[in-house]
Write a protein that binds this DNA or RNA. Structure first.
Lengths: 197, 197
DNA sequence: TTCTAAAATAAACGATCATTCATTTAATGT
DNA sequence: ACATTAAATGAATGATCGTTTATTTTAGAA
């Protein structure tokens, strides 16, 4: 909770978001290795010292940026979710939402992939992150109960439902794929065939 | 080609492999960011300068290490491959080989994942790397011709056949999964259902 | 054994790193 | 208008970075 005491100059929200954008941009272009605080600050048009007003240190900046993007991703995936739709339709909606978010925000997504595969990953509470995606697990659970979906662990199901799409729409890993509608349809059919009973 | 002129002290192969092991170990424990040449050298019990006898520079070390591991992975995946076996059996063999290599060499595999998701990835010729895996593509092609496997692009097929397994057996990404035989069987069934016609 | 040339190294290079400090700027309540 | 307080910053900190240099070590040919 923020306490406003007598008088207080307020943090510039545009600056905060400029820092996040600069972090994502630089990390994708030159990697974690070369993305120094000074370079990020210069890219965001702020002083290096300013960064330490918004974040405890560099690690805090990188972790917070990861969590911020994961949050946006979960919101995008779950948008327009209809509890009452058939299970296959719900999953198709999640799937296409994910595809479009990743395609249209490739630098943000690549940041999270680079982050998740690095030791920084150990600094986040992944259970908390997974909570944002619970509606997906609920749909899968309902599918298992209705004997529409195979009765295997959630890890296996989600790894087939969502990791292929993440790779197909990641420009760094998959250079020959375009996000045309046939690709999306083809790929979803494979994902569905994988998990359906 | 190496020319031996009159007399010549020979490079210590144990040192070379100590450097690779130290690189993999450190990159996995503390990431690309913190894995400095001096730390890698210290871990390998050599001088930082020695490293520059074996590799042009740090980037060369990291790229070479990536290629070395990818080479070993492809050899493991393709081992005991029988041209005449049924298609499903061949893919099952590739699949279990991959699962076991990744499970038993998790730090090596995690290195390649971290590398592939970083901008260092741009420094390798991915077409060359893919060539090591051509037998896999040939099996898939044969399956398409025999109308056993769906007629979609290789990218889509391989992304369903191999990326899920990579995630399931990557300890960093998948902490709750054990490599018991039921998991392997379950997961392969999903992969097969995804790609089969 | 002696000589040779590359392997191997310790020490040093300038550059850049993450972070802090001393100071200035700019909102806000009075 | 003024006082207050945090936002914002430029400059400096010591540490560490990747790489090079000058020197020593060592395996093998003569």
């Amino acid at each position: 909770m923020i306490v406003y005491f007598r008088s207080m100059r307020i943090k510039d929200e545009a600056k905060q978001s400029a820092i996040i954008d600069a972090t994502v941009k630089l990390v994708n272009e030159i990697g974690f290795v070369s993305s120094s605080v000074s370079k990020i600050a210069k890219e965001a048009n702020v002083s290096p010292a300013t960064l330490y007003i918004y974040y405890k240190n560099k690690e805090d900046l990188l972790v917070s940026t990861y969590l911020e993007i994961k949050q946006r991703l979960s919101e995008e995936i779950l948008s327009e979710f209809n509890q009452n739709a058939p299970i296959r339709d719900s999953l198709y909606k999640f799937w296409t939402n994910a595809f479009h978010f990743i395609s249209q925000n490739n630098s943000y997504f690549q940041y999270t992939e680079q982050f998740a595969n690095s030791p920084y990953s150990e600094k986040v509470n992944h259970e908390d992150v997974e909570k944002s995606f619970t509606p997906i697990y609920e749909v899968l659970q309902k599918g298992i109960e209705q004997k529409i979906i195979k009765n295997v662990s959630f890890e296996i199901l989600s790894v087939f439902m969502f990791y292929p799409i993440m790779n197909l729409s990641n420009a760094r890993l998959c250079k020959n794929i375009t996000a045309d509608s046939k690709t999306i349809e083809d790929a979803f059919q494979l994902a569905w065939d994988a998990i359906k009973l």
